[in-house]
Write a protein that binds this DNA or RNA. Sequence first.
DNA 1: AGGGCCCATCGCA
DNA 2: TGCGATGGGCCCT
Length: 296
Amino acid sequence: MLMVSEQSVPQRARTSATLYDYDRVRRAVAFVSGKRLEQPSLDEIAAHVGLSPAHFHRLFRRWAGVSPKLFLQALTLDHAKRLLRGSASVLDTAYEVGLSGESRLHDLFVAHEAMTPGAYKRAGEGLEIVYGFHPSPFGLALVMASPLGLTGLAFADGENDRAHVLAEMQARWPLARYVHDPARTARYVQAVFGAPAGHANVDVVLIGSDFEIRVWRALLKVPTGHAVTYGDVAQHIGCPAAARAVGRAVGRNPLAFVVPCHRVIGASGALTGYHWGLTRKRVLLGWEAARLTSAK
DNA sequence: AGGGCCCATCGCA
DNA sequence: TGCGATGGGCCCT
């Protein structure tokens, strides 16, 4: 599916191409969404990211599996609204579709919730977390794992964003012991981004409050190519008036991409927010829509 | 224990 | 547009 799984390309070339591709895509998407009214041509967009039209076209075939035209079509408000069709009912699926059957989902700290005051709840005391940065189709990814499985997945915007992203993630579980060991986190990248969309074969550890975990589990039911509203999620977890609280919990999702918080959008179809940048949310939704179309 | 503040919401005028 | 009701989390008494 991705560069990650192409066996013929040498490791180093794959790595740089992946990050390079994402950066170009990101700039193209930001350019287009900033000029909604002018409707820039493909040639103009290619020029903006410093590529010839032919190279621009090849980049998209390689990265998204579809033409740039098709990909950029997936970024309209109209398309986002279409993702919402049947949004309430997708949540009624019997089990999480975001993970493969072999995956295991561990809800840490929930059991303690009743007896622990707020600060202690998130501390992560006694937990050892290994971490590393790896290239991904959506930019540099910070992968965090505890012995039971994948604990954190965050995106950085370039090399000089690393420290900030790491600090932000570590602040979630301040008492955990952190070990920098990219060799041990590398396999998660393949498992998450190399799997058929929405079926990552990884053990997953969700650390959060009871409410947050109910929200995150609900998100795992939203299949690729669908979106739900914050209100849909609120309804589903039995707090119909808590759409706004859901928004807050969605924003604290520690597992970008795996827990598909990018598939939650406003009731109007607008992409209201994304912890790792609205442009990236647009890219993720466009990428999934494009790949779904090309698979048909 | 309780008040105040923040927020990736939502629907109505 | 703009506003008010809204619930959870966190920080401060």
